[in-house]
Write a protein that binds this DNA or RNA. Structure first.
Length: 320
DNA sequence: CGTCCAATAT
DNA sequence: AATATTGGAC
């Protein structure tokens, strides 16, 4: 295997078929300033690490929770974590008493353009009325993705849509009042906005609805119902999820994929070069998600070195 | 109860 | 700024 080392340039249509070859050695992944400590250690608690080292360790999350609607997370108080087997990597010796750090928090999910694309497709195909976190999550079929993750992203996405509504005409969709907005919206800009997304988000009415501002007076019949679920289960199982580790934080981990052909979660780390694009990484996109037939992704470069952000990306199975 | 949503915190 | 977490409403 050849490893360019610096590269990070992923190319080829089906780069994922050889993603593991691209995996840099662990040492390569770690920028010089970071020290490694045992996974458990780092994960178990917040390590003060006053000493200087930001301990970064990688752990595996098995996500059994995500899709299973029946699963319950503990709503109560502090720990909402879905703990799971830690990656007890040491095959030889260790055995024993490892403690699965309970009360562990998941690493921050990073919404990659691909993930977002999946998100948008799901919403689009669901129709606004059914596009609620739980449903979206299920349709996305991304392993390890939680309802909370989706909810949070959805909230932001709605804000984005509203912002867009305010802007009529004038330049292309990228028109932004302030530079800040432009920067902010890059992620969202990477995905086409399905026609009827404008105005009309918010009150869903069914099932929970909370204090929605105002529901739609009437409900336009757009898309019937697409049994997308079935299709999704079939095909698309490769969406990239990413985990970000704040240099500041001491918790870390990565989503694992328990099923499918890969038994080891793969991860690819490093900031993304501005232009190094991965091309066409999206799955074949079967009929199910075919709504948007645009060329997709565009990667955004990491900005400023201020926060040396390491991004781990890996590929969940997508089991539901 | 479970979920949604908006607000708030990190 | 981008996510996570919390709290109130159904």
């Amino acid at each position: 295997m050849k490893e360019g080392g610096g590269g990070g340039v992923v190319e080829g249509e089906n780069w994922f078929s050889r993603w593991e070859e691209d995996l840099p050695s662990p040492e390569e992944l770690m920028p010089l300033s970071q020290s490694l400590i045992t996974p458990h250690l780092a994960l178990a608690f917040d390590i003060p690490t006053a000493a200087a080292a930001n301990a970064n360790s990688i752990n595996n999350y098995s996500s059994s929770v995500a899709a299973a609607g029946s699963s319950h997370h503990h709503p109560t108080a502090t720990a909402a974590a879905t703990d799971f087997d830690d990656l007890n990597c040491s095959g030889g010796g260790g055995g024993g008493g490892d403690e699965p750090a309970r009360t562990l928090k998941r690493p921050r999910l990073v919404w990659t353009p691909q993930l977002h694309k999946r998100f948008v497709d799901a919403v689009a195909h669901l129709g606004i009325k059914n596009a609620v976190p739980k449903t979206i999550m299920q349709l996305m079929s991304v392993d390890g993705l939680t309802r909370e993750n989706v909810a949070s992203h959805l909230q932001k996405y709605r804000l984005y849509l509203k912002r867009m509504q305010g802007l009529t005409s004038s330049s292309s969709s990228s028109a932004a009042g302030s530079p800040a907005d432009a920067a902010t919206d890059q992620l969202f800009a990477s995905a086409p906005i399905p026609h009827h997304f404008l105005r009309g988000v918010g009150g869903v009415g069914g099932g929970g609805g909370g204090a929605g501002p105002a529901a739609l007076p009437h409900e336009p019949s757009f898309m019937p119902f697409v049994p997308v679920a079935a299709a999704l289960q079939h095909h698309q199982q490769m969406v990239a999820a990413a985990v970000q580790q704040q240099y500041h934080q001491r918790q870390m981990g990565h989503f694992g994929s328990p099923a499918a052909g890969f038994d080891h979660g793969g991860f690819l780390a490093r900031g993304q070069p501005p232009q190094t694009g991965m091309h066409r990484m999206g799955p074949p996109v079967p009929a199910a998600a075919a709504a948007s037939s645009y060329a997709d992704d565009l990667e955004e470069g990491a900005r400023g070195g201020a926060g040396g952000r390491k991004v781990l990306t890996l590929f969940p199975t997508g089991e539901d």
